[in-house]
Each structure stands twice: as structure tokens, then as C-alpha cells.
Nucleic acid binder design. Structure first.
Length: 428
RNA sequence: GUGGACGUAGCUCAGCUGGUAGAGCCCCGGAUUGUGAUUCCGGCCGUCGCGGGUUCGAGUCCCGUCGUCCACCCCA
């Protein structure tokens, strides 16, 4: 045997055992998004490296050390997308969606970041990403959050809580940033290594430090809220009012700052205590300044992304079982002559009802083995064909979940008999 | 990127201080003729992650490497 080839670090296969949870999440998300009038778009996985450098920020962790970047044959620098927002904005600009228009859009698919993997954190992971363009007021901020809350409710997810903050405008943030640098520089001797590194790159991140030694120093730092402009304050109040009206619980976390540079005003995060240290299951915010930064018409914009792997883990952790996919009918086939008849009967059943889930008992085995498989498959009804039946042009039909007598009928009658047995159960 | 734990049959794991691999589950067959539970009997399945080293001999010790998990970090 040849040596096996291992998969790449942090790149996972999703197998049939987990698929029901993925389908449940994706189907539910699609329904909820439809209900709010969001439209799907599909985007390339590869973009020019410059897109992400400009959008996410040169000095962010993502751009500095986590992107899968490589040169194509022409020497152009390409990057596997580490997130969807930049790509979606680029697509909106490319296709002229931002000229005095409003759009509610969503996209989903794999993202790539070269982080050290852990449960809930992978190098290829999947996001559902929702964005709205052209809406300036806090009402759309509220709608996007309500949408996510409705998704949790539809999925049956508990143990998530919402945290909010406002980062202000880029201008007020610049002022605040200077104040922070001044403050932390004055307490330079108290800072740890990480914080000193961030001091001039991204001092807001120091506020987010988990180092208990810094807690006191951080508590004394100037507050972002105090440097918000009147407009930003009103916007944030409007959002909080709308959420309260809708009965959505939240906490304002003044230390919630995002690792991507493009955010302004509203930022939020849905957090769970059920997944260890990868606790953010959905997060986003407003990025009014990003579109012009990427060469588009100035357009207000806001969005969020959820991590599909994290939601799937959470569903499983919470013991939420998605709807099953048991077959309706299992066709028991035993014998060479029977196998031809079995395939034909299975096809006839599918013809009779396109939604019917028919599992053909291929692969041999005796009656005992076939019935074991039929039982295990969860099928409701068995259609039984041995060589004996095949020779006589008949089949036997049996309900596997009720104490009914097994009946013999002509092949042509099988779909009607099966339908009757399935209907009998549905009626109970 | 830093620190730590781990990597033995398809799955979950056991293998004490080094002597050439085990259990349960799963799967297959059988317990009188073509029928699903349970029980019983039997069977299949292992480059002990990979590569080096020490040793008469390594799953067991050492080094490297790949991967998983946990914390940090980061974030979805």
C-alpha cells in the first residue's frame, strides 16, 4: 500500500454524520433571510491581495500573519479570502450596485485564515455573511440584529448573549486613539509585551486585553463613549431603543472593539459560554467608511458574519437534533433475478412520487441481513422481492413500524400500496 | 506565533517498570427451510500517525516531523 496523505492542518472534511446539522443551519438561515428580503450572492474565493490589505487594515493580525497569500503564474499576488465583507463590497462596486441604491445581501462559503487550529477555529471555515448597503439610520442596525436573534430562535439556540458597542466615526476614533496613546504611554511601565506592541499600531485593542494585571490600568483609561459625537451617540441610542422595543436583551460592552479596521459606530457580538475560548458565534458592525476606501461611492454599510462550524458545534452541544432524513421505503432485494426487478420497482416508486425517499437494498445479503438494514435505515415501509416474487411478477409490501400483515401484490400495484401504508401512518 | 496534553483496529479506548498487540461497539456469518429486538456462538479488521535513534529486542525510551485537543493569542 502507498503511504496515506494527511489533510492540511486545520482543513476539515464534513461527513454525512454531521451533515444534518449543517443542512438544518443553512436551510433555516435561508428561510429567515428570505423572510427579511435579503438576496443571495456568490463570490470568488480568490481576490487580489490588495483588496484585503486595504479593507481589513495592514496592521491587523489577519493581514499581518494569517492570510493564505501566494503569487500566480504572472506574479500577481492573490489571497484566499479571510472574510467575506471585503469581497462583497468589491463585488458591489464592480457591478455598480452602490449608485443611490439600497441592497440587502448575503453570501456563504469557506474562508481561510492561517491560525493555529483549535475546536471552533479552523484554517478553512465557513461563514454566513449578511450585509446591507445604503442605509444610514440605526433601524437597519436593529434589523440585522433582529434577524440574527430570529435565527437563533428558529434554530432553538440558547446560551448566547448579545454585546454592543459604538466605535464612533473614524474622526472621533482618531481623536480617541490619540488620547489612548497618551494615557497608555504615561503608564508604559504597566503594559505587557502585547500591549506595548499595539500601543502605536492599534491601541484600542489594549482595552480588550484579558491580562488581569492590566485590568486596573484599563479601567482608568479614557472612555470611548465620552468621545462619541452627538450624531454617533444618537445613532447608538436609537439602536438600543429599537432593540429594547423588540425585546432583545443586550449589554453594552465598552471594551468591545473589533480586530478589523473598517468598523465605525455600531459593533456587536453574539457570545456563547458553551464552546470554550472560541466564544464568538456571530459578530459584525457598521463600516460606513469602507466603500470609498475601496474606490466606491460613499455608501453607508453594515453587516455581520456567523461561523457555521461554531453554530454546528453549539447545536450539538445543546443537544438539538435536526430533522432526520430516514427513507420512506426500503426495497428488500434477495437473489439475482430479484435484483433486476428490485431496481425497476424502486424507480417506479420514485416515478409515482418524486418526493418519496426510496432506499434500494443493493449489495447482496440474505433476507435476514436485508431486513436488518431496512430496520436500521429507519424506513417506514419495506417492499420485498426475492427470486420467487420476481418470477411471479409480484412483490410483498410490509409496514415496518406497525403490526400489519404482509401483503402480496402485482408490481404495478406497489406504489399505490406503499402510498396507502405511508398514509395510514401519517393519519395516526 | 507561545506553552501544555495527546496520536494503538471503521469508532471509543486498554496495553504496568521495553520482550514481537487486546476489549467493547460496528460489520459479516450461524443458532434447521426467505423476514427486523434481545441473547449465544463464530469471523473479518492493526505500516501501534510518519521518519530516524538507543537496544539482543520499542506501541512502550530519545530526537525530529505531521496532525488533534486545551490555554494564550486571535476571531466566526
Amino acid at each position: 500500500m502507498n503511504p496515506t496523505i494527511q489533510p492540511l492542518r486545520g482543513m476539515n472534511d464534513v461527513l454525512p454524520t454531521d451533515m444534518p446539522w449543517w443542512h438544518f443551519l443553512e436551510a433555516t438561515a435561508r428561510e429567515v433571510l428570505d423572510a427579511y428580503g435579503y438576496q443571495e450572492v456568490r463570490l470568488p474565493l480568490l481576490e487580489q491581495t490588495a483588496l484585503f490589505k486595504r479593507a481589513i487594515g495592514e496592521y491587523t493580525d489577519i493581514v499581518e500573519k494569517e492570510m493564505f497569500t501566494f503569487a500566480d503564474r504572472d506574479g500577481d499576488s492573490l489571497t484566499l479570502r479571510p472574510e467575506a465583507t471585503a469581497s462583497l463590497v468589491r463585488a458591489a462596486i464592480t457591478n455598480g450596485l452602490l449608485h443611490n441604491q439600497r441592497h440587502r445581501l448575503w453570501t456563504a462559503g469557506p474562508m481561510f485564515r492561517g491560525e493555529r487550529p483549535q475546536k471552533g477555529r479552523y484554517r478553512q471555515f465557513h461563514q454566513i455573511d449578511v450585509e446591507a448597503y445604503g442605509f444610514a439610520g440605526p433601524d437597519i442596525d436593529a434589523e440585522l440584529i433582529l434577524l440574527s436573534a430570529r435565527l437563533w430562535q428558529r434554530l432553538g439556540i440558547s446560551r448566547v448573549r448579545l454585546e454592543l458597542n459604538s466605535l464612533g466615526t473614524p474622526e472621533s476614533r482618531r481623536v480617541y486613539r490619540e488620547k489612548l496613546i497618551e494615557y497608555f504611554s504615561a503608564h508604559h511601565e504597566l503594559l505587557d509585551e502585547d500591549s506595548r506592541r499595539r500601543l502605536h499600531g492599534n491601541p484600542l485593542r489594549i482595552l480588550d486585553s484579558k491580562n488581569p494585571a492590566l485590568a486596573e490600568c484599563i479601567a482608568g483609561a479614557p472612555s470611548l463613549a465620552d468621545s462619541l459625537s452627538t450624531e454617533c451617540r444618537e445613532h447608538f441610542d436609537g439602536l438600543q431603543q429599537a432593540l429594547s422595543d423588540a425585546g432583545i436583551a443586550f449589554t453594552v460592552n465598552p471594551r468591545l472593539v473589533r480586530g478589523l479596521d473598517y468598523y465605525s459606530r455600531t459593533v456587536f457580538e453574539w457570545i456563547t459560554d458553551a464552546l470554550g475560548s472560541q466564544n464568538a458565534v456571530c459578530s459584525g458592525g457598521r463600516y460606513d467608511g469602507l466603500i470609498p476606501l475601496l474606490g466606491g461611492e460613499p455608501t453607508p454599510a453594515i453587516g455581520w458574519a456567523l461561523g457555521e462550524e461554531r453554530i454546528v458545534l453549539l447545536l450539538q452541544e445543546l443537544g438539538i437534533t435536526p430533522p432526520g432524513v430516514q427513507p420512506d421505503v426500503f426495497v428488500v432485494v434477495v437473489g439475482d433475478r430479484a435484483s433486476r426487478a428490485g431496481l425497476a420497482v424502486a424507480e417506479r416508486l420514485r416515478d409515482s412520487n418524486p418526493g418519496l425517499k426510496v432506499h434500494a437494498g443493493l449489495g447482496g445479503g440474505g433476507f435476514k441481513a436485508q431486513f436488518k438494514r431496512a430496520d436500521k435505515s429507519g424506513a417506514t415501509v419495506a417492499v420485498i422481492i426475492g427470486d420467487d416474487e420476481a418470477d411471479r411478477g409480484v412483490a410483498q409490501v410490509k409496514h415496518l413500524r406497525m403490526e400489519n400483515a404482509q401483503e402480496t401484490c402485482a408490481i404495478a400495484e406497489v406504489p399505490a400500496r406503499v402510498a396507502a401504508l405511508l398514509g395510514a401512518q401519517a393519519g395516526r
